[in-house]
Nucleic acid binder design. Structure first.
Lengths: 132, 132
DNA sequence: GTAATTTCGGTATTTAAATACGCAAATATA
DNA sequence: TATATTTGCGTATTTAAATACCGAAATTAC
């Protein structure tokens, strides 16, 4: 019923989208990415925009337009892509967003820090070329 | 800037509240719990209600009213309390909530499952008496 | 019995984040 | 140059979840 670790559709689109684009020599447009990720073209467009701005994709408008990778698949890891969308992942933040802990010692005892470190490590290890 | 693992204020109030009540022999009322957790009395009241219904607390109205633990502190672990508020923690759920994965193999490769398992284990190991 | 205090429980509001929309700008083709 | 196609970008809407409110009911003490 409840979930501890979640990922926004935006981050999902970004990661899947980059892989899909990498797989395609010709470039891929919004509509095709939307179809293949089973999401709305509006949302895909929004997300791709940000990857273009961040320098990971080049875009072309008009017929035959679409997106291409700007870097080699082996030089892009998931963490970079993820953080463009979500912002830098912070380790050691209070999971309840408390500025001041009401208790002497935190009851979550840094378990969330450990988990976050793991998540970050995983994302850093995955490169796009591993998913071609 | 971004956070991977988070906890609602409600779950935080539940866990901290139960510990605070356990520390007090006399019982504790909404207002005091709110003060000591630095949260609103409205929200505390709401959360405590649920713990009463779930059988973890007894409540008394009127002056000298408040809440008391119904079980021994060593017999209450964090997981039980957490799940009353958030619902059962599910392992193995797609972090993007996809019903059908658009890819042959999941790009998150069960890292989130592992993290969730860890989180659950941690909560299960913590009992209230460890925080008296 | 009255007044003060406190929880109960239904509902309302807020909020933040995510997602969707729609027009503008660019490009290709014919 | 006209038309079709596609991305760009600002904004609107949705949504779900969290949080706050408020009158009612219970209890205590004097």
């Amino acid at each position: 019923m409840s979930k501890v670790v979640s990922m926004s559709e935006a981050a999902s689109i970004a990661l899947h989208g980059v892989i899909l684009i990498a797989r395609e020599k010709e470039g891929l447009n919004v509509l095709k990415i939307a179809e293949r990720t089973n999401t709305s073209k509006h949302h895909v467009a929004k997300v791709m925009q940000r990857l273009v701005k961040a320098g990971y994709l080049t875009s072309h408008r008009g017929p035959t337009g679409g997106f291409e990778l700007r870097k080699k698949p082996e030089d892009i890891n998931f963490l970079e892509i993820y953080e463009i969308i979500e912002g830098a992942i912070e380790i050691g933040k209070c999971p309840m967003d408390k500025q001041v802990c009401p208790f002497d010692k935190c009851i979550m005892n840094n378990v969330t820090s450990k988990m976050t470190r793991e998540f970050k490590e995983y994302l850093r290890e995955q490169t796009v070329n591993q998913y071609l």
